[in-house]
Design a binder for these strands. Structure first.
Lengths: 179, 179
DNA sequence: CTTCGATCGTGCGGAATTCGCAGGAGTAGA
DNA sequence: TCTACTCCTGCGAATTCCGCACGATCGAAG
């Protein structure tokens, strides 16, 4: 996973002549630290995952090589991935659903078991009337039925499920930080 | 919908002789009917969004130029986007939630209204005990509270909402087709 | 049957990008 | 001060991207 913090590297390398505010980048108190420059790089790549390193460098004030090294590290650490995303409905997967799951016992163990299923593309532990929310992608109704009723409910600890079959995907964005 | 942000990147500035705008017909509802080769290309880019066209060409049995033209078309049509995706928690957004929404009246109108909000990164119409499922990304608790109680419930047609605050993201995949 | 017109693939240079590596500068600890 | 690290920069060389011209295929119209 990406939880390795790697000894807080965010010391804000002051380049040569530019004086960027060193006091700005630590707004989040959580463990994995990203400085403002890495955030800006991610932002660029959220707009276009294939944007050249030199263009990113101009936007964030870094050389091409520096951007390339930072991107590589972000990928290696698992902080981000650069991938093609699609609307599954246009790619041949005709049934999608969000499934709310109630668990007795170890929630995380159930989450791990569900994560191991290839049809589950999104697994998150939640607070509220569900313990887990799972998004599943299937090829057709039979497949969907099989996954929900046979596979998910067969996982030890799953008490009950409630399904929300997707009718239409209205929005899908990956541009947090761009606001 | 989501296609407009990506398509605008390089479509306009090339048009050498016949700059016609096919992006208009990319309204969803019409399946662009992807063949096996385009599917294979998408699959390659789901593994690595920056993979060179030549390498993809070798994998799918096409020339570099053909791959490039197909990828450009897929982007223009909004079938796929090539972007960086992250776990928002590591990028400074500390509160995420899935919100189930019940609607009276025009569900799609409500969906459009919610899609216009930048905090809503994922909006889908569903069958089941919710009419809409909305994933929202916020910076902190105050922001989350504001979005749910003030903004979402203020949308005309929203009858009720139920929130599921994210505790931990366990899985996030973009590799349908790779199985 | 022939001819447009549109779509799709290939090949090819030139420009742009990526890649690897050798420094230099700042920082922390012994 | 010296060493060990980290991070950035600069610079060739290899690779990749990009525009463009041309050929093949297919369906519809003449």
């Amino acid at each position: 996973m990406h939880s390795d913090l790697v000894a807080s590297r965010s010391a804000e390398q002051k380049g040569s002549r530019e004086s960027r505010e060193p006091s700005r980048e630590s707004r989040n108190g959580s463990s994995p630290q990203l400085d403002a420059v890495s955030l800006a790089i991610i932002e660029q790549l959220q707009e276009d995952g294939r944007r050249p390193y030199a263009a990113i460098g101009k936007a964030v004030g870094l050389s091409e090589a520096a951007v390339r090294q930072r991107v590589q590290k972000l990928l290696d650490q698992g902080v981000m991935q650069i991938v093609a995303v699609t609307d599954p409905l246009t790619v041949g997967f005709r049934r999608q659903a969000m499934v709310g799951v109630n668990v007795e016992g170890d929630v995380e163990a159930v989450a791990d078991a569900l994560s191991a299923m290839s049809e589950c593309e999104y697994v998150v532990m939640t607070a509220g009337s569900f313990d887990l929310m799972v998004e599943i992608v299937c090829e057709d109704d039979d497949h969907l039925l099989d996954v929900i009723n046979k596979r998910i409910r067969a996982v030890p600890g799953v008490r009950s499920t409630e399904s929300f079959v997707y009718l239409k995907l209205k929005k899908q964005t990956y541009m947090w930080g761009t606001r």
